[in-house]
């Protein structure tokens, strides 16, 4: 599997390179440091949330409520930022905590009531968005204080804060996924759900963690969202879940669970980001973007299936068993 995953990431990486090459041939402005930086800066939120979604999909779950979660937490963060006396710290706590609460709610319904993840998050998507719209009455949060909106463009030691946050998120998620019992339990649960509890894994807790962690990362993203755009629309993040899921799937995670890597998902994010940027630079009408993204998605998942099948075929040579089931057998 490791080989396959590596191969899959490599294939997507090559695809990213080919796309980048094509774009830079047509639009020289593409391959400039400032443009590359802007691609990264424009996709920070997507990348952060893709990290969480990877873990969710590895457990064989899915979360279509993250777009609503993002809007919910962003409005909340914005309202808190407007309160005099609030600072980065209060905003951070509010964003992360509200994200965790929303994610945990999904997790509890999925693990506790055994309702499929897609159904639960379909429901909570509407609940989160509905209560948000009801509360704000559709009004935007504007006039955010400068200390907050400057967050996105401030650099520390020459590195923009959003990038630092992204790197931290990647580091922490990688650490959790690869070096903790909890992270390996996420992979174990996705790989063989039927027996996970037999080796002492508290499957409910692991599922709840994955969704809560997704929520936490959405919360962090929501802080960046308001800082980036300076105004927050209560419809913020609508359909964003599909972008996040697409990036993760392009990166090779299997919706049936058990496999998916953070590196792959990051490549998936970059492919989406580069395409979006390239289409503008190449002066192609923007509505071509969905055609290309859709085709890449379809190609990626189809190739996966075809490759896997070839592998299976090769394994399927029999003559292996020679035991005696005859004679006095009953």
């Amino acid at each position: 599997m490791n080989d396959l995953l590596k191969k899959r990431e490599f294939v997507m990486f090559m695809m990213l390179m080919v796309i980048s090459l094509c774009i830079s041939l047509i639009a020289p402005a593409f391959l400039t440091p400032s443009n590359l930086l802007s691609i990264v800066m424009n996709n920070i939120i997507l990348a952060i949330m893709a990290m969480g979604m990877t873990l969710v999909i590895v457990t064989s779950g899915i979360d279509v409520s993250v777009g609503s979660q993002l809007g919910f937490a962003a409005i909340f963060v914005g309202l808190v930022a407007l309160i005099p006396g609030s600072n980065i710290f209060t905003v951070l706590v509010v964003g992360v905590v509200s994200g965790i609460v929303l994610g945990l709610l999904n997790g509890i319904l999925i693990a506790g009531a055994e309702i499929p993840a897609i159904v639960v998050t379909l429901g909570t998507m509407n609940i989160f968005r509905g209560s948000l719209l009801l509360y704000t009455n559709g009004k935007w949060v504007t006039a955010l204080p400068a200390w907050y909106t400057s967050l996105y463009n401030t650099s520390v030691m020459g590195i923009p804060i959003p990038i630092i946050i992204l790197l931290l998120v990647i580091g922490v998620t990688h650490f959790i996924a690869q070096h903790t019992r909890l992270g390996r339990s996420i992979y174990a649960l996705g790989g063989n759900p039927a027996i996970a509890s037999r080796v002492g894994i508290n499957t409910g807790m692991v599922t709840m963690f994955a969704f809560a962690y997704m929520g936490a990362l959405t919360g962090i993203s929501s802080i960046l969202y308001g800082a980036q755009l300076a105004t927050i629309d209560p419809n913020a993040g609508t359909s964003f879940e599909l972008m996040v899921i697409s990036a993760v799937v392009i990166g090779g995670a299997n919706v049936l669970g058990g496999s998916g890597s953070l590196l792959g998902s990051l490549i998936g994010v970059l492919i989406l980001g580069v395409l979006q940027n390239g289409i503008i630079l190449m002066r192609i009408e923007p509505y071509w973007q969905n055609v290309v993204v859709g085709l890449i998605l379809i190609t990626a998942v189809t190739l996966d299936v075809v490759n896997n099948r070839k592998k299976e075929e090769r394994k399927k040579v029999i003559y292996v068993a020679e035991e005696v089931k005859a004679g006095g057998s009953i």
Binding site: Y287, V293, G294, I298, V301, T302, D304
Partner: peptide, 18 residues
Amino acid sequence: IGVPPMLVTLGTMTFFNG
């Protein structure tokens, strides 16, 4: 081809819209 429906239609959702 046997691609999981969720993946196919995630792709075609974007594709058809495109």
